[in-house]
Simulated assay, not measured.
Amino acid sequence: MRSDALRRRETILSTARELFAQHGANIAMDLIAERSNVGIGTLYRNFASRAELIEEVTVTTLQEVLDASTSAEADLAGEPQAWTEFLENLVKLNLGALSEALGAALPSTLSERVLHVQRECAQAVSQVLELAKGYELVREDLNAVELVTAIGAATRPLPRPFKDQAPQLQERLVQLMLDGFRPHVVAVNA
């Protein structure tokens, strides 16, 4: 694929991802094309259907989780800050908004392609979590499913009245959740 065609495809994917997270997976394909600065024909040449675009956004997002995990695993041994960066990277992926938007749009039977990347992700997140436990950076009773589910729950879109009344509420909730992942410190009476 030519570099300009690849850039257009990546732009469509990132725009679709953002719009799916904000408005749901049923957003008009015309709007995705418009916001991507491409014609509707270009959008459909890259993704023949909404289902194909949704699957590609899903795979791309899972790949980003996998990349963040691989990077954290490589960095964790020498740099405990890598755990915090890993968590921050997962939060930035806006997994809650995307899972809400894409969950109903994905077919009930996922393609082998999605399942393959999903399995790789689960394994990679588990490995990073176990390393972090070994360095006493995270509580021992946390498992990978809980970790990803908590991040997904904390990054779900808040109802508009909450966002309007407390604009920083989501960031605060995310920070409380991340703090809750830390190992418990038991005070010892001297």
Rank of each mutant, 00 (worst) to 15 (best):
S3Q: 14
R7V: 06
R9H: 10
T15F: 11
E18G: 13
E18W: 12
E18P: 00
E18I: 07
L19H: 05
H23K: 13
H23W: 12
G24T: 01
A25W: 02
A25S: 14
A25G: 06
N26M: 12
A28Y: 08
M29C: 04
L31V: 04
A33N: 06
R35L: 05
V38F: 10
G41P: 02
L43Q: 02
Y44R: 11
Y44D: 00
R45N: 15
R45M: 11
N46V: 00
N46L: 00
F47C: 01
E56S: 12
V57E: 03
V57S: 00
T60E: 12
L62E: 01
V65P: 00
L66M: 07
A68V: 02
S69G: 07
T70D: 07
A72C: 03
A72E: 03
E73L: 15
D75T: 06
L76K: 02
P80Y: 09
P80G: 04
T84P: 01
E85R: 12
F86A: 00
L87T: 02
L87F: 02
L87S: 04
E88A: 12
L90P: 00
L90Y: 02
N94L: 03
N94R: 13
N94E: 05
L95H: 00
L95N: 00
G96Y: 00
A97C: 05
A97Q: 06
S99N: 12
G103N: 01
L106V: 03
P107K: 05
S108Q: 13
S108E: 14
R113G: 03
V114E: 08
L115Q: 15
L115E: 15
H116F: 09
H116A: 07
V117S: 05
Q118C: 06
R119G: 04
E120N: 12
C121I: 03
C121L: 08
L131Q: 15
Y135G: 10
Y135Q: 15
Y135L: 14
T149R: 10
A150E: 11
I151R: 03
G152L: 02
A153L: 14
T155E: 09
R156P: 01
P157A: 15
L158R: 10
L158S: 09
P159W: 06
K163C: 11
K163I: 14
L169V: 06
L169Q: 11
Q170A: 13
Q170I: 00
E171N: 11
R172K: 14
L173M: 15
L173I: 03
V174K: 09
L176F: 11
L176C: 14
P183H: 08
V185D: 13
A187I: 11
N189G: 12
A190H: 13
A190C: 09
